[in-house]
Nucleic acid binder design. Structure first.
Lengths: 190, 190, 190, 190
DNA sequence: AATGAATGAGCCTTCATTCAT
DNA sequence: GATGAATGAAGGCTCATTCAT
């Protein structure tokens, strides 16, 4: 089912590639397999074998953050108050999206390079759906919001915060949380 | 002040280039000057003289939509009720952003290729600032929202709606308006 | 025989082109007709009519200097002492070659764009031949030096001095005169 | 220290590129990487990897000749008579400069594309400096000539000989040696 | 499994020259 | 005579991907 265990040197290479790619992503550089290979002092073809496309590599880089978010979602599911649960999850999502530049493109992408990525995303949506259902049941959220709005809304907020390219990552995260708050509270004061 | 009047044939070429570029943008193709030239059956250098960079061409393509939006902003300024005025403007902006794919990149860009574009954007921000000030004065809007939030928020909503790439433009516009409404109203029902 | 008198505006244009070209040459920029036209705010075709090739323009720019050198040659012919006459002429040539960057390429070129340039160059060689003949007759110069060595030797010295691109024009002229002196005196001390 | 040994096929390609470039240089054609690639039936990028700039390729083509000259310089250093040593070296230099059209531009260039080229040039200047010092000590050369005059003087002579574009390479070499002789002996007969 | 050399399509851009206005 | 827009060939260079070693 899962990938066969890698030979030790292969595993090392794989790790090295991911580390280099991580640096690229953090620096805002474009992930180019060729480039990454050179930086990692690893043959191009080796990189291609491990990661057939830049997307596959990017998703692998984003993986830990996405998994972490999934754990936050599961923790949120354990929370009693439906509103607190939902809000905490959304805040966690924004934080992850704005803290790790590898994540937004993975979320925004319509298709996934890695099956595993799709799995995680689906489980995240499922968790959100549950949180949403509880919130709806409790009447603490607009009835028009649907499960399918999660990704767009979150990515939209992250995108909005990222437009301020002059800010540093921490400031952008703060800004994103403020935008989330605006969305939750609403701009209008009747 | 403005560019000297173009010779008739030059004006035709310019128009033809813009039309071809418009088709590129609408089809979601990347604007490449060489490519546009070939499609337009016009010499590359001619295209380069008219539009030194793809951005300049894109901004020119986006121009009418941006001007239209500015007129909507000015109309909104004529509206008595501060909240209606602001909301109408925001709705118009979302509509334009989602109706014309040339517009979002122009708004999201930090720098402008054409001076005129910068002018328009600044006038738009000024108009928004005025609408916002009135809304603040009337106490009909969250006091934390600032002038500098306009572009991020609007672009964020447009981005969110555009993530649903399966939808056609009209459906995306509708979705965008719903997202705007969510933002104005707030997700939370206390 | 000679060009018909130019219309006044045409003459002005011509003058303006030459002035601009002079600046180009002095700044070490490449003479590009298109470029010159734009800088001079004159239509490209106008420039082309006046000067069909960059060489033609360059030769025109170099003209006054070449004519000046020819006058120096004629003055040298009036000098009594054959050695002084020859040496003065050579020194004048080096000075002109290193003072006006338009001149060396004109001298080094095998073919001339303008008839007038060819005339002047030939008259210069003739004058040199005469100076040389007198020097030979007086036995004050190596018998192997021929009329056809003038251009190569002078251009060679100018080239040598120009290699020191770090120096300013005046310093290069001084260096060129030193190289001429070396050539006249010889490096060898027996 | 030196470049890692090339793979066999890579070495063949490299060699092929150099051979084609050599033909270009000998024919007086401009070295254009794209052009060379096409002629050599080798991918452009391959050529670019081996030689990032035309200068790098040119210097590589010129290398054997420059190395040969350096050996001549070292042989000259072994010669007892200071004047003979210096003269032989200069003659060898002129021969090389006029025999291999790849060499003059390399010498005249202020900056080197390849470190190795710079090394060789510096070693050549050092050798010349030594030959010059001995000649000065023996009082057999004009005291004004300095080490820094080597390149200009040699290139100047080569340039002078090359102006006679009608001559074939061998004749030009002969002419160059005559010009060298004139420089050593001096034109003036007092 | 790993390597990295090779590929060549394809983009961007410039320039000399012509020609319709 | 003057203008300057138009041309399109051509050069420079990069990049994702393959394949021989």
């Amino acid at each position: 089912m899962s990938t066969p265990p890698l030979r030790k040197d292969a595993a090392q290479n794989r790790q090295r590639i991911i580390e280099v790619a991580r640096r690229y992503v953090d620096d805002g550089r474009l992930l180019q397999l060729n480039d990454v290979a050179r930086t990692a002092s690893i043959g191009v073809a080796t990189v291609y074998r491990h990661f057939p496309t830049p997307e596959a590599l990017l998703e692998t880089v984003a993986l830990p953050a996405v998994e972490k978010l999934l754990r936050r979602a599961e923790r949120a599911l354990a929370e009693d108050d439906p509103w607190t649960a939902l809000r905490d999850f959304l805040a966690a999502a924004i934080e992850v999206l704005l803290t790790d530049p590898a994540v937004p493109p993975v979320f925004a992408a319509g298709t996934d390079a890695l099956e595993h990525t799709g799995d995680l995303k689906r489980r995240l949506v499922t968790a959100f759906a549950e949180l949403l259902a509880r919130a709806h049941a409790a009447g603490v959220i607009d009835s028009g919001v649907a499960e399918s709005d999660m990704t767009p809304l979150l990515c939209g907020i992250a995108y909005a915060a990222n437009i301020q390219s002059a800010l540093d990552p921490t400031e952008r995260a703060t800004l994103g949380l403020r935008y989330l708050d605006l969305l939750l509270t609403g701009l209008h004061r009747p």
